[in-house]
Design a binder for these strands. Structure first.
Lengths: 358, 358
DNA sequence: TTGTAAGCGTTATCAG
DNA sequence: CTGATAACGCTTACAA
């Protein structure tokens, strides 16, 4: 049991009294060399001892108030839902961001309750601003207004993966091309000639880039597939994947391989295939884009992987670089494009010899 | 574009000046009736207008300093890892906790980077304490020391799911019995007589309670299974599930149904079954305990569900109740036991007539 | 109904 | 090398 008990927590004044020094000395002693004030080793030890005895912990609010910085960066994952499968990406980023930030002496506050009511989201953004975060990382922000909430107040922003067009914000995107090229090449090398595509249609630049990459890779392999082999879903849900795959199986010549633009879509695809007794990869090869939980499915999916750790770390670095500049000094946004990479697993193999159906 | 620009954020003094009133009036006006000071509707409007024009947001640090409370509760998920599948529970709780807290006028700070080095965890706990959280919710704390870090400083604690024995902390547990009873009954009603069990051995009270519940239910159904049908794994990982299931399939009379004490274990089981061409539920019925992502697997698993929303909400309620008492008044810990419930899906069916193997 | 002033816990400046 | 002192932004007695 500690002697402090549950009364009021110890303050630096308490530590000062106990060590027989002034409050200022306590502050200097605890911040080591970071302060330009020097304190003798003897008193330094005395202060440290007093601090541990009183289990002293600085009051972050007071610190933030006095220095003009909080040492906190905000992280806003988007489209969080009840279930992890609906949007798994933010979860992965979260730990990498927190870890990287800590490494640089920052803490992360993540805003964690998404709801259909925008009001709540605004409340959460205000929470970050009221905490005086020094910068924020926004994962696929829903609107450019959301980004501007921060930039308008001079808070540096890094957008991830699906950025809004806001000039003042840095971005980190992922280049789908390499990974998808390798995916197509991989399927061709296995001997596939009937390759289908499942993805969201829409005009989102990220989605369009993926489609373009796949089309280009197929053409390069002299395998341009006719339109019916491209299934465009209206959402990224598992159900959409289920429906898309069902349609593809009704084609006169069903595909022997399918490229799916998202692990969640793939979830639905696998469910349909299981129901219909279509074995993977014996009767159909499957590759997903994302590699969030692809490794954990049955069978484990060959997948185009995104470098989540890099994304998280770079996001922190980009942000912290900008915090160095005193005012609007070298406060210019940067843009990073990170490569993707094919991860081979058990869901791809050579096409079946005869017919594909059960 | 806002007029504030990126200089320094507006303070209540700025608002006061702009509205032509004193700082105190601003405070009173913004906190409505919560302050016992009344302010005329006219000036109130003037203050509000000024505040919005300046996009004023209070400085949480200053507020925390002055009132002696932060309005923040901490949440510490445990055993977070890189991948969500290794411990999916915290993720579910997170949004429910945040939502419930906000509903009660609190914010949640979640500590998000777990690492093998304990040092980092301590840093994160100190972050919460330095933020002067008013209470914390600990999900399955790793050690009782971790709990005591908080109670020793008079910070109320609610432990979830796998509590440590610390008298001062409230707990929320789930009662596996009902759900597991229903699970066994469900399998019996379908005609199963060879039911296997996969779970961690160990002496953890939660694990033991689950095993006891299953044993009792089986006996009540006059179906006490011999020892080889109980597979005890050394971990809760997918690999452990994979190995356990592989062993069960080598039994002279393989089971026609299996109860798995965790969705992650089930992940490995499904992978093995897929590899071995054992169809679910045709050749083997599968029920998992947990219902975290059971719905998303192929086939969707019948699962014993835990009431995550309730757990999150109750945790917040338990905490906030204790914050009301001024000092060590009615500051007594409470203990809640919530029921579990069987959720039927596609992974259970009648046993196969003939032999079970491919 | 409103303004004045003090103080929450820290740190930075300035004397000693 | 160390001690006073002021100030960060806010709320709350208390006075007007």
């Amino acid at each position: 049991m500690d002697s402090v008990a549950n009364s009021r927590m110890a303050t630096s004044k308490d530590v000062a009294r106990r060590a027989g020094v002034s409050q200022a000395t306590v502050s200097a002693a605890l911040h080591g060399t970071r302060s330009n004030i020097r304190v003798s080793e003897a008193t330094r030890q005395r202060v440290l001892a007093a601090a541990t005895e009183l289990v002293y912990l600085p009051h972050l609010g007071a610190q933030t108030l006095r220095r003009q910085r909080s040492g906190i960066i905000g992280y806003v994952p988007r489209f969080l839902r009840e279930t992890l499968y609906e949007r798994p990406v933010p979860y992965y980023l979260s730990t990498h961001i927190a870890r990287a930030a800590m490494h640089h002496g920052y803490h992360v506050i993540e805003v964690n309750a998404e709801s259909s009511q925008t009001r709540m989201s605004e409340q959460l953004i205000q929470f970050l601003l009221s905490q005086r975060v020094e910068g924020v990382i926004l994962d696929a922000p829903a609107s450019s207004d959301e980004v501007r909430h921060f930039v308008a107040r001079g808070v540096p922003v890094v957008q991830l993966l699906r950025p809004q067009p806001v000039a003042e914000a840095s971005t980190i995107k992922v280049d789908a091309a390499q990974g998808l090229n390798s995916a197509v090449d991989h399927l061709c090398a296995l001997g596939h000639t009937l390759i289908a595509f499942i993805g969201t249609g829409g005009s989102d630049p990220v989605d369009m880039a993926r489609l373009t990459s796949v089309r280009a890779a197929l053409e390069r392999a002299a395998l341009a597939m006719p339109d019916p082999y491209f299934a465009f879903s209206d959402s990224r849900s598992a159900e959409a994947g289920y429906r898309a795959m069902r349609n593809l199986l009704t084609l006169p010549e069903p595909p022997t391989a399918v490229l799916i633009m998202g692990d969640v879509l793939a979830l639905g695809v696998l469910r349909l295939l299981y129901e219909q007794h279509v074995r993977v990869p014996d009767a159909l090869s499957v590759i997903s884009y994302g590699n969030t939980f692809a490794a954990f499915l049955s069978p484990p999916l060959t997948s185009v992987g995104q470098p989540f750790q890099e994304i998280g770390e770079q996001a922190v670095v980009l942000l912290i670089e900008r915090l160095g500049g005193t005012t609007a000094a070298n406060n210019i946004p940067e843009h990073i494009l990170l490569p993707t990479e094919l991860v081979l697993r058990a869901s791809t193999g050579p096409p079946a010899r005869g017919r594909t159906s059960p």
